[in-house]
């Protein structure tokens, strides 16, 4: 297993794509979160902090698909694409049969409104996509699928993460009285 993980991590070129289909029940999300954590830790160059962040991103996307997209007894599909040394892409698709189904433009509008600076959410729900998924990804798009349902795609670039971590490091160094070279 360690050899496979090392090989995946050292892979310089080919994207690695993994697709999982699961029934629309929140019980299965614990396993998907474990899988996400393990996948990011073992086969990407993202840090431990980002492994946990992707865990939340995937959980929120899937919960949204289960609540709005696919009725009980149906399925949702999750695709992970690791672009080595570049980015992680995650796609979650529902079947379009959920009771609270929304169109891609409606979800996009809701996320845009709720993620505006100073926007306050008073309800118990409604923080997942605008406050967690949007904050922790570089690209977030919603697309209506031709046969019904929605496809949500997110992408996070490794370069952006490294830049952020470098900035944080410089900021911390700025608090010190000595510069460590």
């Amino acid at each position: 297993m360690n050899d496979i993980a090392t090989a995946l991590k050292d892979n310089k070129k080919e994207p690695i794509k993994i697709t999982i289909t699961l029934p629309t029940h929140a019980y299965f999300m614990s396993g998907i979160r474990d899988f996400t954590l393990s996948l990011i830790r073992n086969s990407s160059n993202f840090s431990e902090q980002w492994a946990y962040r992707f865990q939340s991103v995937v959980d929120e996307l899937c919960n949204n698909a289960i609540e709005h997209g696919s009725k009980p007894g149906e399925e949702i599909k999750i695709t992970f694409i690791n672009h080595p040394q570049d980015s992680i892409e995650i796609i979650v698709e529902d079947s379009g049969t959920g009771e609270k189904q929304m169109k891609a433009t409606e979800i996009q509008k809701l996320v845009d409104e709720r993620s505006k600076e100073g926007a306050v959410i008073h309800e118990i729900r409604g923080r997942g996509l605008p406050k967690i998924v949007k904050e922790w990804t570089d690209e977030l798009t919603f697309t209506d699928k031709p046969g019904g349902g929605i496809m949500v795609r997110v992408k996070k670039y490794l370069d952006d993460v490294k830049t952020q971590e470098l900035k944080q490091g410089l900021s911390l160094a700025g608090d010190q009285t000595h510069i460590v070279i």
């Binding site: 979160r33 959980d59 929120e60 309800e123 118990i124 997942g128």
Partner: peptide, 12 residues
């Protein structure tokens, strides 16, 4: 682990 809904409850 805590999801966004549990954060909503915490706020409430």
């Amino acid at each position: 682990y805590m999801n966004s809904k549990s954060i909503g409850y915490l706020t409430d």
